[in-house]
Simulated scan of single mutants.
Amino acid sequence: MRIGDTVRRPLRPFSLTVQAYLGHLRDAGFTGAPVPLGVDGRGREVLSFVAGQVHRHPLPAQAAGQEVLAALARLIRALHEASAGWEPPPGAVWGGTPTDEGRVTERAELVSHRDYATGNVVFRDGLPAALIDFDLAKPTTRLYDIANALWYWAPFKWGDPRDRAPALADADIPHRVAVFADAYGMTARQRVELAPLAVDMAHRYYEGSRASAKLDPVFRRHWEDGGKDVLARAEAWLRETGPAITARLCRPG
């Protein structure tokens, strides 16, 4: 619920941990996230309202350009720089899907957003400027965070031609990935490891969604309404296209 320049949300087990993280981002000078404002008298968490525009899938033409990818990559890089070195408070609780129960990624490098779904990226003046909905934030790796962004924005999830938005029907996705990589400043190792990680991520998303569908009606509805088919096609497409993505990322110059 929006009240003035604030947003009020139900307090959940992970809310105070996420508020601590958002407070660190604020103190580190990162302006692309809500500011945490504590808990109100009705027991709701309070966040600053983030003004701007969000886009849903299928992405419209004005949100599908290469300049959007580059701006998103720079925004995520700034988030990573602000996040680096932050230690979660003792007893930190993280959110997650019904099947992961907040498990922390192995070899975590930093805490980050981890859910760059199109509706979580706020645009201003036609470009990504902020991120909202940090419910899935938790310790992770930079490369996983990059792969998650590309899942929605390259897009890996809708790489199969049958699932693409009209604005991306003829998109050169390996090239789009390279645009993001260059703007972020991905290392040589990250470029080599990205496509294999994306294949593994797609498989885990499929298996996790299938398991979640058995536990939660919301996930079940999404799964049965075509989610299972899109995820299966995404994994198959990534397995086929992964070598081309790696080749493009590692091309000299």
Rank of each mutant, 00 (worst) to 15 (best):
R8G: 01
R12E: 15
F14S: 06
S15Q: 03
V18Y: 00
V18R: 00
G23L: 02
R26F: 07
D27T: 09
G29H: 14
G29W: 15
F30W: 09
A33Q: 11
P34T: 08
V35F: 05
L47W: 06
V50A: 10
V54G: 06
R56L: 09
R56S: 06
H57F: 14
P58N: 00
L59I: 11
L59M: 13
Q66I: 11
V68P: 09
A71S: 13
I76R: 08
A78Q: 14
S83Y: 06
P89A: 10
W94N: 15
W94P: 15
W94T: 10
G96M: 09
P98Q: 13
D100Q: 14
E101T: 05
R103H: 10
T105C: 07
S112Y: 08
R114K: 12
D115H: 01
Y116G: 01
Y116M: 04
A117N: 13
G119E: 15
G119I: 07
V121D: 01
R124K: 14
D125Y: 09
G126P: 07
L127I: 06
L127N: 03
P128Q: 10
P128F: 11
A130I: 05
L131R: 10
T140N: 15
T140F: 08
T141N: 05
A147G: 09
A149Q: 03
A149N: 02
A154V: 13
P155R: 04
G159K: 01
D163M: 06
R164T: 14
H175T: 06
R176D: 08
R176I: 04
V177M: 09
V177T: 12
F180Y: 15
A188Y: 00
A188K: 00
R189N: 02
P196W: 02
L197N: 04
D200T: 00
M201K: 01
M201H: 03
M201L: 08
S209E: 13
K214R: 15
D216I: 01
P217C: 02
V218H: 07
D229R: 12
A234L: 00
E235T: 05
E235F: 06
A236G: 06
L238W: 12
E240Y: 02
T241E: 12
G242Y: 14
A244E: 10
T246N: 05
A247E: 03
R251G: 01
G253Y: 11
